[in-house]
Design a binder for these strands. Structure first.
Lengths: 254, 254
DNA sequence: CCTTGCAATATGTCGGAGTAATTGAGCTTC
DNA sequence: GAAGCTCAATTACTCCGACATATTGCAAGG
């Protein structure tokens, strides 16, 4: 048995409890374990069909109690990543069983080197859903929705997409659109994907300076929604997503 | 506090272990608890902001160990339904935090009387995604995909939608289309929604005899995909979803 | 080839020690 | 005297390790 000093406990031992509670990988110990195992699975370190042999062995290796490990496994099971059966051990399920749209799973998928094919799938889904959302928003928005969009747009103008505040404003803008659709299912879906994709945006930023000014494209979407023109809103959002895809794709190919 | 004789243990006490293991609400004890609490939350029995006060109190009331209750809470936490913090108790999160696209959450949502608005949201999402999926399938399908669709279609003809086998064939047909898109994200999303919606299909069946023969509509989709005509495939799938929505809506209004 | 017994392993249970956060009392300040 | 702040006690979650149980894969024997 090799002591690898997994540093799961070490994090706690440093007494830096505040950080762990506010923005650690998982706020709690089992959350940290779930994060560790989740990223290992998503990164392909464990293949579907592999077995995480030994409840006790794992608990010892990670230097945590069996309870903590068990609760982490419950989390992974709840997200469809693994399945535990007596005697057989805990096995990684085939990819089709994974809840790829779960925010945590998405976060784990993008924790390491994101799979290019998966990123493309996500953008494709986004290209399907977001224009449709813009269409619905153009039909159903009220004054409050428009105000939220306008404010977010103004914030985007003030800061740029290179800053945290700017990216937050971008998220706010898209969220305002989703809210205007009055569709909860659409909201949670796109919010999850958007959050994950924004991870790749930082990626993109790191690769090179922003190649174009995104404001005019956003304004076109906003104007169409204000005008209550569903067709124009969908088309404007379509080009927005396409451009984002282009930028990300070219950034990842280098 | 009312004693409601939770009967979670009683199920085990009857010695009917096989049933619980094969097709119970959740295969395991904590799964059963998660199902119970999950349906209670989804049905609005617990409102967002409410607190499930007391780990020990709940464990005693349900007559299970604290560990089992705790693992169930982990599952709910993983799905974004609740959040546990020391001293404050376990609180139900606002609806926007829920992973509404999680298969289990969907199942819980449809366990009782499904919320009409939510069903409409789901159909709306389906109406957005499935035609787009058909479009992609028409572009990317290969011979094996077509064979799967053809077989499923034949099975649908043999059995009707009134039988389990027929509904399974329907699912196979749609899954074959999703597989042909070569997009995993699309696959898991629509599979989840489809499964949930099929719950309402049984509902529909219970309400009245099937009002129309669904085969011709399916054939139109199939033909368009065979021909490699994306536009026609998307349109044909669009009418298919619309008709399903109509049927379900009229069935729920009575 | 099928059945049966064994053993390995995950599941369920329990109670206690530890820890973090809320609450309210007591104090200080204006 | 009222308002705001500090701090400690309470409270509930969190983690732990050992024990009991049930399921199942595997192998031996019919």
């Amino acid at each position: 048995m090799v002591k690898e000093s997994p540093s799961l406990r070490a994090e706690e031992a440093t007494g830096n409890g505040k950080d762990r509670a506010t923005r650690g990988p998982g706020r709690r110990l089992h959350g940290a374990i779930a994060h560790k195992l989740g990223t290992a699975i998503l990164s392909g370190q464990y293949q579907p069909g592999d077995t995480l042999s030994g409840e006790v062995a794992f608990a010892e290796e990670l230097e945590v109690s069996r309870s903590a490990y068990r609760e982490a496994i419950q989390v992974l099971t709840a997200k469809g990543l693994v399945e535990s059966r007596p005697k057989a051990g805990t096995r990684v399920l085939p990819r089709t069983r994974w809840n790829l749209l779960d925010p945590d799973v998405l976060a784990w998928a993008f924790a390491g080197e994101p799979d290019i094919q998966f990123v493309r799938d996500l953008f494709e889904l986004r290209a399907i859903v977001e224009p449709a959302a813009a269409r619905l928003a153009a039909q159903r928005r009220d004054k409050d929705d428009l105000k939220l969009m306008k404010d977010a747009l103004a914030a985007m103008r003030r800061h740029t997409l290179a800053t945290d505040a700017g990216r937050a404003a971008d998220r706010d803008f898209h969220n305002a659109i989703l809210n205007a659709t009055r569709n909860d299912a659409l909201l949670v879906l796109t919010a999850s994907i958007g959050a994950a994709v924004n991870w790749t945006t930082q990626f993109k930023q790191r690769a090179r300076a922003l190649p174009r000014n995104p404001i005019p494209d956003h304004v076109r979407v906003y104007d169409a929604i204000v005008a209550g023109d569903p067709k124009a809103a969908a088309e404007a959002m379509g080009v927005l997503v396409d451009l984002a895809l282009e930028d990300t794709a070219s950034a990842m190919e280098r």
